[in-house]
Simulated scan of single mutants.
Amino acid sequence: MVADCYLAGVSTRRMDKLVKTLGIDSLSKSQVSRMAADLDQIVAEFRHRPLGEAGPFTFVAADALTMKVREGGRVVSAVVLVATGVNADGRREVLGLQVATSETGPAWNTFLADLVARGLTGVRLVTSDAHPGLKDAIAANLPGAAWQRCRTHYAANLMSVTPKNMWPAVKAMLHSVYDQPDAPAVAAQFDRLIDYVDDRLPDVAEHLGAAREDILAFTGFPEGLWQQIWSNNPNERLNREIRRRTDSVGIFPTRDAITRLVGAVLAEQTDEWAEGRRYLGLDILAKSRLTIVTNDDTLEKEELPALTA
């Protein structure tokens, strides 16, 4: 019962009141943690499960959350690296998680290498924000996969270099890029955005030009997929659920405790996705060829593996 309450995000104070009705005088945080250790085997099996049978995972999203943990007598920050993917059945899965000291290139490289070792294959696109080192880790571990810079995070980055009085106009034009019906129209509207800011806001124009390939990577895939792959918003909803469960803990006693609770939440979420409706339709995933549209050329990708219902 205590383990279930712990997973549900019930605070120690509320749990203490609950167990008093069962004749237990008090319940400390350390006692709760020891009782919740029953989750460790479930989480370990989930984290280390083979990924090969469920693949290929054509689309992957990666994100990180910061947690507080007590180490060496001090409260320090740690990050939880999380990756989700869309499997061969069109359903989402949490592929893995890893607790690291900070979000760095080596940390992402170790995390992605573990996913590949467990059977992650067939990745065509990884969506994430632009943390340093992540793009290099993707290139090193997932050769051939494109990188989509999350449109939501990019908008925040662009806002930081845009004068406040000009941001509403720039934001509206940026959003209009994503409203276009096909890849050529997206490219043309992006050109119009560049033309609009070129003379007025040269720093903004430079920022947009440098990010063009990364924020428009989604146009290399069928239009029916765009809303699912051009941002990390679906993972943000997952992050909010993790926060809801972990806020009652506040400061974790160890990194293992972070892995235990977050891992159990993610395992539970993966089970719910498996029972729910498909994230992507098989008819879209099963298109025999993908094209990548660049400024000057259209390059055909090799055929995707056939998918069946």
Rank of each mutant, 00 (worst) to 15 (best):
D4C: 12
A8K: 14
T21A: 15
G23N: 07
D25S: 15
S26P: 05
L27M: 06
R34W: 13
A37S: 11
V43E: 01
R49I: 03
A54S: 10
F57H: 02
V60D: 01
V75A: 06
G85A: 06
N87I: 00
V94P: 01
T101S: 11
P106M: 05
A107G: 04
P132Y: 11
K135Q: 14
K135L: 13
A140K: 08
L142V: 13
Q148E: 04
Y154Q: 06
A156Q: 13
P163N: 07
K164G: 05
M166H: 14
P168E: 07
V170R: 01
L174A: 06
D182R: 13
D191Q: 12
Y196H: 14
D199R: 15
D199Q: 14
A205D: 11
A211E: 05
R212K: 12
D214A: 12
A217S: 09
G220E: 03
G224Q: 08
W230T: 02
N235Q: 15
N239K: 06
I242N: 00
R243S: 07
T246A: 04
V249W: 02
G250C: 00
A264N: 06
A267C: 11
A267N: 04
T270D: 03
A286D: 11
S288R: 13
L299V: 15
E300T: 12
T308D: 14
A309M: 10
